[in-house]
Structures are given as structure tokens and as C-alpha cells.
Write a protein that binds this DNA or RNA. Structure first.
Lengths: 137, 137
DNA sequence: TACTACATAATAATTATTATCATGTTGTAT
DNA sequence: ATACAACATGATAATAATTATTATGTAGTA
């Protein structure tokens, strides 16, 4: 779906800044932090403020357009909201999607937790930590 | 095992502060933050510094005595280092262990991720988010 | 075209985590 | 028992990341 249409469909206003920010998240698999999105969007909007990026990402998450991940005590944004696990490299800080068999099991895991009496489970995060291919030694 | 013996077995020095801190973690299921451990240990050692608690917890984690969890961008310490999942209540901030069927599956999940080519997976965190029994409405 | 509600930008405050360094204490060897 | 080297502690400060405030600007709607 077209990015402007996507924003409208969630009842969000369409501004050049928002289009740029959402386009960035939709086109990367790098799971950028607010800071990184800020750096990227400044290439096109040099005068955009950090606060705008921060608040915009927040509203995107509230609308369910993006996934706000908490990995190693850092927030990272993922344009892919489908359930999947993540890997964090302790050496270089890179965040990768973990694909394969795990992804199918992911939802089963969530369903299992939802059966815990008393708990109202809204979301789930699965984070692996270690070294990525480039940093492996 | 006796707490002093446990410290020694990991090559760590035994001090009154360390005994108190490790005892706290071994006797609670509350997954306290550094700040909370600091508050608890001050009941017995009113002049202990935050830094001591912070550094001590860090060395405990390095020695594998405790588990440093990253949940909702906050570090929490768990005296139980056996693999298990956690639940975080967005309302009250409480962290609970998730027991049952999930715990057995936890290690399978880790093994699955370890099969991902190229990755060197060291650890794994599974965090559920939602409302706890007391905060459910 | 005008108007209202929301978005933006500049700035500042807050919170959590980590660092520095002088002094004190533990473990070990005498 | 004593002394000493290595590490722990406490006081303080710095850092890093996240969130708040507010005046001005713009999108959406009538």
C-alpha cells in the first residue's frame, strides 16, 4: 500500500516528514533507533528536529504501523509488524530478524503464554544475543 | 548452597555487602532493578553506595550468579539463572516468571536459533507484556 | 478561504546507567 | 599474628537515552 494511504487509513495526518519517516522504516531491515532514523531523515529534511522524529515514531507505534523493540535497553523501530524474533550483536549493535522455523513457533509461544491464568498478555518479544556473522571470531 | 560458599566458588570476594546483595536476589522473585536492590540492602547497610550495588550486581552477572534482564528498557536482576520467560505488567511495572509448558519449550527455542547459519547465539530473552492479575480490568 | 486541531522545531528536563578516584577491606603469604 | 597487594567500597560526577514544554506552522475540513 502507498505510504500516504497507509497513514490515512490509520487516521494519521499526512505530512512530508511523516512520509519520509515511514518510508525509511518500510524500506529498511536495519531496525534503526530514533537517533538513526533522525540521521537518515535529515538527509532529505535537514531542519527536522529530533523531537519530531521521536513523537512521530511514537504515534506510528500507537497506530500499529511499526513495532517498537526493546533490545539490550535500547529502543529500535521495525517496519515489519508481523511476529518474529530478533538477534542483537553485542559487538557491533546490529539487529537482525531471525527467520525460519522459529517464526512459525513464535505465535504458538504467544498462545501458550496467553493460557497463563490471570495474565492479560498483549505482546511478546524474543531476543537473542551474541555475535553476528561479521563479528564472529 | 551457602551464599558465602557460592561467592567463593565463583572466585569472588566475600564481603558483608556482597552477602547481603546476593541474599536479596536469592530470596526474592520480584526481579528488582539496581535501584530496588539498593533500597533493600540499605535497610541493613544504610551507608552503602549505589555504585557498590551497581558494580556488585555487574560482577555477579559476569560470574553467572544472576541474570541481568532487559525488560521494557529497564535492567532487572533475577537470582534464578535457569532458562525461563518473563512477563512485564505495563501498569504496575511488576515482573513475573512465566512457568509451565513454556519453560520446557524455552530451551528448544534457543536450540532452534543456534542453528541459524553464521550466528553465534549466547543468550535469549523472552518477554511478554500486558497486565498482571492485580492490574487486569 | 478561514479555522481548528494537530504537527513541528527548538530547547530543556528527566531518568537510568556507567565512570572516576580516594579510601577501606579481603585474601594470602609470610 | 602481620603485612601487603589486589580488589571492594563510597562519594561524587559524567554520560547517554528518553521524554517533556511551548511557541509557531501546517493539514484537513467546512
Amino acid at each position: 500500500m502507498d505510504t500516504a494511504t497507509l497513514l490515512k487509513s490509520k487516521g494519521l495526518r499526512v505530512t512530508p516528514q511523516r512520509l519520509a519517516i515511514l518510508d525509511i522504516l518500510r524500506s529498511t531491515k536495519a531496525h534503526p533507533s530514533v537517533e538513526t532514523v533522525y540521521d537518515l531523515v535529515r538527509e532529505r529534511f535537514p531542519s527536522i528536529s529530533f523531537n519530531t522524529v521521536y513523537k512521530t515514531l511514537q504515534s506510528f507505534e500507537d497506530a500499529g504501523l511499526v513495532w517498537k523493540l526493546s533490545i539490550d535497553n535500547l529502543y529500535r523501530y521495525d517496519g515489519n509488524t508481523l511476529p518474529h524474533a530478533h538477534f542483537y550483536c553485542h559487538r557491533c549493535g546490529m539487529v537482525l530478524d531471525v527467520n525460519g522455523e522459529l517464526t512459525q513457533r513464535f505465535s504458538e509461544f504467544l498462545e501458550m503464554a496467553r493460557k497463563t491464568p490471570g495474565l492479560k498478555v498483549q505482546s511478546m518479544e524474543v531476543n537473542f544475543y551474541g555475535h553476528c556473522p561479521a563479528c564472529r571470531y
